[in-house]
């Protein structure tokens, strides 16, 4: 049982909690910023409620740029900004800003796509009732697209899990950090294996829960 004894279980536990914390906080901010951004992309798009082609193209370009930067580069480039925002670029707090900046454009695009799936007739019917744009968004578009949005949250959360693992490289803490320190620097591949298993379990749990939720909200 040397194998079990050699594993720093306390650190594994702490790292797991850190990962969950990073995931939870960054997902919350991603929702908060990404949902409005996705709605804005949808609304200003071609032949939509508040069509603004130039604005849409500019916004779309920024989103594309952010999405095309590899996350590892984003982590490094973001460091000065992160320090201004949360006072440090290390640990759990230091990894939140790059995680959010990495996930928001991705999530916003998924939201935009989910909204585009809605039958235009439903928007027209709601307009014909005399709804304001705000009412159309909050009472018709988002409830109708909810299954798609929940699926988008699931995909984004899973992407964030792999991002949190990457942020370990710059001392972000969490399971990724543990894997790098033990598995890479000390050549303890058993610890690395355990982190991989834990990450796998986390991803599986997110996917299963997300799918259940999508099914719950689907009325079609």
């Amino acid at each position: 049982m040397d194998f079990i004894a050699a594993i720093p279980w306390r650190e594994v536990g702490e790292a797991s909690l850190d990962t969950l914390l990073m995931l939870g906080v960054s997902m919350a901010f991603t929702l908060l910023l990404g949902l409005p951004l996705g709605v804005l992309l949808f609304l200003t798009g071609k032949r939509c409620l508040i069509e603004r082609v130039a604005f849409y193209n500019a916004l779309s370009f920024v989103v594309n740029v952010l999405r095309s930067v590899p996350f590892i580069i984003l982590l490094i480039v973001m460091m000065p900004l992160t320090e201004i925002l949360v006072g440090t670029s290390l640990g759990v707090p230091g990894s939140i800003p790059p995680l959010v900046v990495g996930a928001v454009p991705f999530f916003a695009r998924l939201v935009e796509t989910a909204l585009r799936e809605i039958d235009r007739g439903i928007i027209e019917a709601t307009q014909a009732m005399g709804a304001t744009t705000w009412q159309i968004v909050t009472r018709a578009l988002i409830p109708e697209a909810l299954p798609g949005i929940v699926a988008a949250v699931t995909v984004t959360a899973i992407a964030l899990v792999s991002y949190t693992a990457m942020s370990g490289i710059i001392g972000g803490g969490g399971l990724g950090d543990l894997a790098v320190r033990y598995g890479y620097h000390r050549n303890q591949s058993d610890v690395m294996a355990i982190t991989v298993v834990l990450l796998l379990v986390l991803v599986q749990a997110l996917q299963t829960f997300g799918d259940k939720l999508v099914l719950h909200f689907t009325r079609r």
Binding site: G121, I122, E124, A128, M129, A140, P143, E144
Partner: peptide, 28 residues
């Protein structure tokens, strides 16, 4: 908007909100 609220409209493909029940659609 006030005018639209006083003009009812029905559609070939119904355009009901799939996320709401019959009663909720009518109340919408």
């Amino acid at each position: 908007r006030a005018l639209r609220q006083k003009i009812g409209m029905i559609f070939q493909h119904f355009n009901l909100l799939s996320s709401r029940t019959v009663a909720q659609n009518i109340a919408f």
